[in-house]
Design a binder for these strands. Structure first.
Length: 504
RNA sequence: GCCCUCAUCGUCUAGAGGCCUAGGACGCCACCCUUUCAAGGUGGAGAUCAGGGGUUCGAAUCCCCUUGGGGGCACCA
């Protein structure tokens, strides 16, 4: 079943934290490879030295691993050495390959040194824009004699860039998900730079040198690369390399339909992680952005997605990012987690809450486990745990007395109700402090007084938790404990005296 | 400006000529359950398949045009 001829890659550039778009593209490559038993590799495109950082490298590598998108070749997990037959997998460590390739092109006159200065290029651009012409390199250095080159060098005083000659004609390919695409090279913007004046190679060049060297069979990437593909094919051709199969994925869009941007959509995977989105939810959601199994299944594990993945079923049109749907899927997955697993995953969020003072102490694993039956189905995200039941671990609960009085009751009734409830609850000892034991006597109280259970329960709820929405009341009181419950009731009763006297 | 590309409910999508009076899911609404909030269950509103021409006995599905959206055109990736 393994197919050694299938080799795909994700090649992010470490110029920012792991982006949702990168994660999705990585996932699709990963799914494609895993489904057929091919190889998935990770390569760092770090030739933009000015913007690349090691911190971003780590973020991307860690984030992808966290999601479960792991590679067969590439940097090791802990930042240790690269693994695989084509190591190293980071471009700044592969400069020799690019130098050799550009020398070959230069020697064959398929590329040439370009002495144009940024100012000259800028002026060209402006003139073209003014003339409503598409921007393109004018070819100033395309046919210089040796003497002219020497003169230009002396004149500009800076080392030349290397420009690739774009041959006339039409370049086409059979796109994996869009069928035939053909582009006239006249529309490519003229000869393009493949190596900067400082000797560092540019994206279009390194990507094909590495893809060829690493025997990439399928290049699966975002739709935004469609117009780059002819350049890549031309380069591959000039170097005599085989042309891989190209497949262009639909883009993830902002809700307004534009290409996803940090400004309009939260794009860092880290940020979702920090909010308590779990990998299962994120992966499930990403997979369904532009793909579906063609069945009516919605909630699938990574393995199930791998099993069903079919590149032919990938959508062509872009998909708007829908956070609401992500939240729903995340909730689905949180509900499916095993207790031990969920407790582990909740831990960091509880610790964070302790750190910033939203709670005063940490519950034990057993405390959390006891809560799970009533809490698990109420968590859209892991971080929501603090919002939901943080009041359990707060020492001094600040409750607005006005909030304690249920809609249909006045302060005096509420005071009376809470006092009576306090009396009944205090009769329980630590042993009978169980939900099943606490509820019946309070129901009897309500019955005797002709009250509505909901009113009394709401008063108790707010008095003991400070909130009008909580997990089931008696489970909550059990979690709170006898002493704290009685203490909070006392505080509320006292506060109500004041309110009653002041007249609300 | 030029080139490329896309087009089914608000959103993600099913649909590869007759199974479609277009299915599912999210969201929304109602009801049920219920001490609140969720979850869950049931039901509902919601797409003249962007528009117009063809092809065909028959088109959401094939072709053309129009319109609209998106992407690209760097010594960024």
């Amino acid at each position: 079943m393994p197919d050694p001829t299938i080799r795909v890659r994700i090649a992010p550039s470490p110029t920012g934290p792991l982006h949702i778009g990168t994660a999705r593209t990585a996932l699709f490559n990963f799914l494609f490879a895993r489904h057929v038993g091919g190889t998935f590799l990770f390569r760092l495109e770090d030739t933009d030295v000015a913007r690349s950082t090691v911190a971003y490298e780590r973020d991307i590598i860690d984030g992808l691993h966290w999601l479960g998108v792991t590679w067969d070749e590439g940097p090791g997990i802990a930042g240790d050495g690269d693994i695989g037959p084509y190591a190293p997998y980071r471009q700044m460590l592969r400069l020799g390959f690019y130098k050799a390739a550009s020398d070959r092109l230069l020697a064959a006159d398929l590329a040439y040194p370009c002495f144009c200065t940024p100012d000259e290029l800028d002026a060209d651009r402006k003139a073209q824009e003014a003339a409503k012409q598409p921007p393109r390199y004018v070819g100033r250095c395309a046919h210089l004699t040796a003497e002219e080159r020497a003169a230009r060098l002396a004149e500009t005083g800076r080392p030349p860039a290397t420009r690739f000659r774009v041959r006339p004609g039409v370049v086409g390919w059979n796109d994996l998900i869009r069928d035939r695409i053909e582009i006239d090279t006249a529309n490519l913007g003229g000869d393009f730079v493949i190596v900067r004046g400082d000797g560092t190679p540019l994206y279009h060049f390194v990507v094909i040198v590495d893809d060829a060297e690493m025997k990439i069979s399928h290049v699966i990437r975002g739709e935004d690369h469609i117009s780059n593909t002819p350049k890549h094919i031309l380069l591959l051709e000039a170097l005599g390399h085989p042309i891989p199969v190209f497949g262009h994925l639909p883009l993830i869009l902002n809700p307004d339909g534009s290409k996803m941007s940090k400004r309009k959509t939260q794009t860092a995977v880290d940020d979702y992680r920090a909010e308590g989105f779990i990998r299962e939810g994120l992966i499930n959601y990403f997979a369904y952005l532009g793909w579906s199994p063609g069945t009516e299944e919605d909630v699938l594990t990574l393995d199930e997605i791998i099993e069903r993945f079919d590149i032919d079923k990938v959508q062509k049109g872009g998909a708007k990012f829908d956070r609401g749907r992500l939240e729903w899927l995340n909730g689905q997955w949180i509900r499916r987690l095993e207790p031990d697993d969920l407790i582990d995953r909740l831990r960091p969020f509880l610790e964070a809450a302790l750190d910033d003072g939203r709670i005063d102490r940490l519950p034990s694993d057993e405390d959390v486990r006891a809560l799970l039956p009533v809490v698990q189905e109420r968590l859209p995200t892991l971080a929501a745990i603090v919002d939901l039941v943080g009041f359990l671990w707060v020492d001094d609960l600040a409750v607005d007395p006005a909030l304690i009085v249920p809609k249909r009751w006045d302060a005096a009734t509420t005071h009376e109700g809470l006092a009576a409830a306090r009396e009944i609850l205090s009769a329980h000892d630590a042993v009978t402090w169980e939900a099943d034991e606490l509820e019946p006597p309070l129901r009897e109280l309500v019955e005797a007084r002709g009250w509505k259970a909901g009113d009394l329960f709401m008063a108790i709820r707010v008095a003991t938790t400070g909130r009008t929405a909580t997990p089931p009341l008696f489970d909550t009181l059990v979690a709170l404990g006898r002493e704290r419950t009685l203490g909070r009731l006392d505080a509320a009763i006292e506060a109500l005296v004041t309110v009653a006297e002041t007249g609300r």
